[in-house]
Structure formats: structure tokens, C-alpha cells
């Protein structure tokens, strides 16, 4: 049996948007603060800091999580994708493109979290119904749009991702 040894600063290593990152952090550092303050990835927003709004959603090992409700040390050894990691060079990710085309944002504050949440939904449920999209967005609040165009954008992105596969048997 090994004995857990107390430590004050903790060394962490993770892959963020395909880049390896190593740092020493105070254990109470939130993942969102590590991303924004240390890595300067300020695309991830903090809307509430109380786990309610979803502005801070990122992917940890392929699952959407609220980065304000996770410690950076808990993400040690993980693969993280933030909103900055979606676009390939000049090409927006299909979900980003759909948000743009369908006018699914106004102030844009909730948008990074909405997009990251939607990408996770489509990865696990490639053809969600509008009902499933709305249920999935339970943890993402938007104070501007009234959600309607967000739901349309996600449905459109899912259709677009699906279309080439069905067109090319």
C-alpha cells in the first residue's frame, strides 16, 4: 500500500488543443482560470462561476464539462479541447459555421459554451431531435437569443455533418 504524500503546489501535464502543456499550480486553481489566465485561452468564458450557466464548457477526454467546476489538478493527464481548438486554420467548425449562418448569437457571451456543448451532443447523438437538443442545453443559459436560433443552428450542423455520408454511399 502506498502512502499519499501531501503537496502544496502540484505539477500537472495535459494536452490542450493538441499542444502538450506542463505547469505547477496551486491546487485550488480552477480549470477555467488555468485555461484563461495561464494559457491565455480566453475564448472560454465565466458567466456565473456557480455551475449554472455553461459559458465555461470545454471538453475533457471527449466529454463536455463545466471548467469552472473542475480543478486544474483534476484534469492532469487529460486531453482538453476549448473553443479555440475547434476551427481548422481558417475553416470554422461546422457547429461554429451553423451558429454564424443561423444567427444563433447576439452578445456572444454564452456562445463558446453553447458550441462546445453542441459539439459533444452531435458527437454522441449525430441526429438529435429538437427536443433532444433543448434537453441537452439544460446547463447552457443564454440571456439574449431566446434559444430558438441556437436550436436551429445545432440541428443544421447535425444535418450538415450527416449529409455527405448519406450522399456518398
Amino acid at each position: 500500500m502506498s502512502t499519499a504524500t501531501p503537496i502544496t503546489r502540484v505539477s500537472i501535464t495535459m494536452i490542450v488543443n493538441d499542444q502538450p502543456v506542463t505547469a505547477e499550480v496551486d491546487p485550488r486553481t480552477l480549470l477555467v482560470d488555468f485555461l484563461r489566465e495561464t494559457l491565455q485561452l480566453t475564448g472560454t468564458h465565466v458567466g456565473c462561476d456557480t455551475s449554472q450557466c455553461g459559458a465555461c464548457v470545454v471538453h475533457v477526454d471527449g466529454l463536455s464539462v463545466k471548467s469552472c467546476s473542475m480543478l486544474a489538478v483534476q484534469a492532469d493527464g487529460s486531453r482538453i479541447v476549448t473553443i479555440e481548438g475547434l476551427a481548422q486554420a481558417e475553416d470554422l467548425h461546422p457547429v461554429q459555421q451553423a451558429f454564424y449562418t443561423q444567427h444563433a448569437l447576439q452578445c456572444g457571451y454564452c456562445t463558446p459554451g453553447m458550441v462546445m456543448s453542441a459539439v459533444d451532443l452531435i458527437a454522441h447523438n449525430p441526429q438529435p431531435t429538437d427536443r433532444e437538443i433543448r434537453a441537452w442545453l439544460k446547463g447552457n443559459l443564454c440571456r439574449c437569443t431566446g434559444y430558438h436560433n441556437i436550436v436551429s443552428a445545432i440541428a443544421a450542423a447535425a444535418r450538415a455533418a450527416h449529409a455527405p455520408a448519406s450522399a456518398n454511399p
Binding site: M1, S2, A4, I7, V73
Partner: peptide
């Protein structure tokens, strides 16, 4: 948050003995 130490348990026994 107040500061705290952080340990990562490697087994159930490890977690309990740390507590």
C-alpha cells in the same frame, strides 16, 4: 476558496489512510 492541500488517492486504502 481557502487554500488546501491536494493528494491523489491510488487505492481505497490509500484514500482512507490519507483521511
Amino acid at each position: 476558496m481557502y487554500p488546501f492541500d491536494y493528494v491523489r488517492a491510488s487505492s481505497v486504502e490509500d484514500a482512507v489512510s490519507a483521511a
